[in-house]
Simulated assay, not measured.
Amino acid sequence: MSTSDPALTSASRPLSAGAIALMLMLCLSWGFNQVAVKLVLPDIPPFLQAFIRSCGALVVLLVIARLRGVALFERDGTLGPGLAAGVLFGFEFVLIYHGLLLTTASRAVVFLYTAPFFVALGSSRILGERLRASQWSGLALCFAGVACAIGVPQPDVDSRVLLGDVMIVGGGALWAATTLLVKASSLISAPPEKTLIYQVAVSIPILGVAALAAGETLERIPGPLALSLMAYQAVWVVGLTFLIWFSMVKTYSASKLSAFTFITPLFGVAAGYVIMHDPLTPAFGFAALLVAAGLYLVNRLSAVVQEFPLPSPHVLEETPEPKPH
């Protein structure tokens, strides 16, 4: 095969120092996202916060799609799966944002980033993708880490916190379900901006109804910190980090890049501990390491990861290789 083949060049190109630094910044941004949500909660309640975030992100994505010349309204067979992905995306954030009311940011980021566990398992069972022995070992480590974090008695962890943990795991499972839907439908060939716009746009009425049903209102004008962190979530996390990720996947191998994403939960735990003063018990620290090690094994040289490189904010897959959340 010619060395000028773009696929070969991308897969074999070593990561530059700049690319490594950029990946670390992205992982830090994704890990800090749960802390950002927690910091805004005193000013903006959870469902209303998620609603505002989706509205802001939609504007950003529409502007980016316009600037990049993405055709959003052509008939390409993506309407049905796009709406379904949006429903999954909306309820994912219902679970995540309410769960963050109950549990800590450190615990939330570990449980949310079990999503690749569900993607790998679903890809094996639903899409017929074969996993290597090391990847099955990674799944086992992830499961053991979650079981340790939830099942081992720890100070300051009561039934309320455990309910929040379970809701975050449910959000991670819905994130994975969205990923699998993208992989198995016509969305796999759609522009990534269009796929994410489906998800964000459909989530807006779902989150709006959730906020109304919960009786959420703004009791005061949000302060500068809350407003800046809302901009961080909507503009930076959902809009720009997604596009940075995809531009890097165009240049470098997705499997090489995704090897970095296993440190995202560790960044999140560190941010929760330093900024939110979340308790960090030996049992939970050990559980977080198990999850991170499991994610590394699942991601390493994985065909699954080449279609689910990330996280995030919640995003979609790239085609035909991958995406972030």
Rank of each mutant, 00 (worst) to 15 (best):
T264H: 04
V157N: 05
L39E: 05
G90N: 06
A271H: 07
P279S: 14
S29Y: 00
P191E: 07
T319W: 15
A254S: 13
A133F: 01
I263H: 09
P46K: 00
Q34S: 12
V291A: 02
M23C: 08
V109H: 04
L79K: 06
Q135N: 09
V59H: 01
D278C: 10
W175A: 10
V40L: 03
V157W: 09
I150Q: 07
A226H: 09
P320T: 02
M23W: 08
G268S: 09
L24M: 13
E74C: 02
T264L: 11
P14N: 08
H98G: 05
A50L: 06
Y273P: 00
A271S: 13
H98W: 14
I20C: 11
A21H: 04
T178C: 10
L218V: 07
W175T: 06
H314N: 05
S247H: 15
F242M: 11
V235W: 07
V237Q: 08
G18Y: 01
E307V: 05
I20G: 07
S247V: 08
L26I: 13
L297A: 06
R160M: 12
E129D: 14
P45G: 05
A214C: 00
S134D: 14
Q49F: 03
M276N: 15
V202T: 12
A177S: 12
E219P: 00
R68F: 00
T251R: 15
V182F: 03
T251L: 12
W136T: 03
H314T: 07
Y273V: 14
D76T: 13
L181G: 14
F32I: 11
A108Q: 07
L61N: 08
I44T: 08
P153C: 03
I52G: 02
V269A: 06
L225H: 07
F242S: 11
T241H: 04
I244G: 00
V202M: 10
V274C: 03
R66H: 14
L24R: 05
A115V: 04
H314A: 10
P153T: 02
P313S: 11
T78S: 12
V200D: 05
S29K: 02
A231H: 03
L67Q: 14
L187D: 06
R13Y: 04
G294S: 09
L316Q: 09
A231F: 09
S106G: 12
Y97W: 08
P116E: 04
L243M: 15
A108W: 09
P192K: 10
